[in-house]
């Protein structure tokens, strides 16, 4: 997927990656890369400003934790973030469903 398309969906992918619990930046990036089968070509650094922005919007919270003797900053969804994810997921499904319907029936 071209980088500009990825950027448009980055927020949704980040919220989805944190849906099942807190993760640090590297783990988030690896999660997206692994589940997408490497379809997204994006620099890892892209996620940090986006995480910072989502935290500023109150959708995520973050804290430093000790993981096997290493200090890592982990992010997790807030209640507002959970609600935002549910809304954006529905929006994406409607959007993708609409495009698929047109593609299939044309």
């Amino acid at each position: 997927m071209p980088r500009e398309h990825f950027s448009g969906h980055l927020d949704l992918l980040l919220l989805a990656a944190l849906r099942r619990g807190p993760r640090h930046g590297y783990a988030i990036s690896e999660h997206i890369r692994r589940l997408s089968g490497g379809r997204f070509d994006y620099p890892d650094g892209t996620i940090y400003p986006a995480l910072n922005r989502l935290e500023g919007d109150g959708l995520l919270s973050s804290r430093w934790v000790d993981l096997n003797g290493r200090r890592r900053r982990v992010y997790e969804l807030t209640r507002k973030g959970e609600s935002a994810f549910a809304g954006r997921q529905r929006e994406w499904e409607r959007h993708a469903g609409g495009i698929a319907a047109v593609l299939e029936q044309s």
């Binding site: 620099p43 890892d44 650094g45 892209t46 940090y48 400003p49 986006a50 910072n52 922005r53 500023g56």
Partner: peptide, 23 residues
């Protein structure tokens, strides 16, 4: 290399920080 261009990251990060400060 996978992490990307430090200048692009800095620009993007600075923008989000400024936005958070204004908020």
């Amino acid at each position: 290399e996978q992490f990307g261009d430090p200048a692009e990251l800095a620009t993007s990060w600075n923008m989000t920080q400024a936005r958070r400060q204004r908020a």
